[in-house]
Amino acid sequence: MKTVLFVLLDQFADWESAFLAPALRGGIMPGRHAVRYATPGGVPVRSIGGMTLTPDCDTETLPDDCAGLILVGGMSWATPEAERIVPLVREALSHGILVGAICNAASFLAAHGFLNGVRHTGNGLEMLREWGGANYTGEKLYQERQAVRDGNVVTANGSGYLEFTRECLLALEADTPEQIAASYAFNKHGFYQE
């Protein structure tokens, strides 16, 4: 069993990991991935919706069995606390571990130059330029899509949580592509398409 580490900062977006974490823990292919939640300093954080979460660990190191690092978006990715995540992202990328970033977490990756060599998306090209400044030179690789997977990097905008889930599950080989597609379709459309 491999661990997927979800990084949460204070004011994290409740919905952005709401489909991915359960799918990894047992909704699609149980027993292949363990989910752990991490925060800087290992302190409890509060979501945008007011839910308080006590993490499993801090963000000092990746687990030895880490298969994925998921940066859950929210309102604190431009704070000093977020800067503590840079070494973790660098370590994950250097070891070929999946790095997923959604919403403002994708902007955080742009601000630190992590998106300059991969196809990616986020909350709009203008926001990536604003956050990234001189560190962001990947404009030509930006795609106007809900989620984009390029190698071991998955990015999404804040409304692309289902597409983000699908792309992360595919990258982690959490199940067959057909089963992942069926799960995506069900969550996207429900029992009835309107």
Rank of each mutant, 00 (worst) to 15 (best):
V154L: 08
T165N: 12
E178V: 08
I180V: 15
G151F: 09
A171P: 08
Y184S: 03
A182M: 09
N152W: 09
F164V: 04
E167V: 00
E178H: 07
D175F: 00
A156T: 02
V153F: 04
R166I: 08
Q179V: 09
A156W: 00
A147Y: 01
F164W: 13
D175L: 05
L170Q: 08
N187P: 00
F186E: 11
E178R: 08
L162E: 05
A181C: 00
A182P: 00
D150P: 02
D150C: 15
I180M: 06
F164E: 02
S183H: 13
A181V: 00
L170E: 12
D150M: 06
D175S: 15
I180Q: 12
Y161N: 10
G151M: 10
Y184H: 15
G160T: 02
V153T: 14
G158T: 11
A147Q: 02
R166L: 11
I180E: 05
S183K: 00
T165E: 11
P177L: 06
G160D: 02
F164I: 05
E167M: 03
L172M: 10
E173A: 15
R166G: 08
A182E: 14
T155S: 12
D175V: 04
A156K: 01
E178D: 13
N157H: 15
A185N: 09
A171Q: 06
D175E: 13
Y161W: 13
L170P: 02
D150W: 04
N157S: 03
A174S: 14
L170F: 00
P177M: 09
L172D: 02
G160V: 08
S159T: 12
L170M: 14
E173P: 02
N152Y: 11
A171H: 09
E178S: 09
E163A: 14
N157I: 01
S159M: 12
F186M: 13
A181G: 03
A185C: 07
A181I: 00
E173C: 13
L172H: 06
A156V: 03
E173G: 11
A185L: 13
A174E: 07
A182N: 12
E163G: 05
Y161R: 05
N187Y: 15
L162D: 04
L169M: 07
A156L: 00
A174Y: 09
Q179P: 00
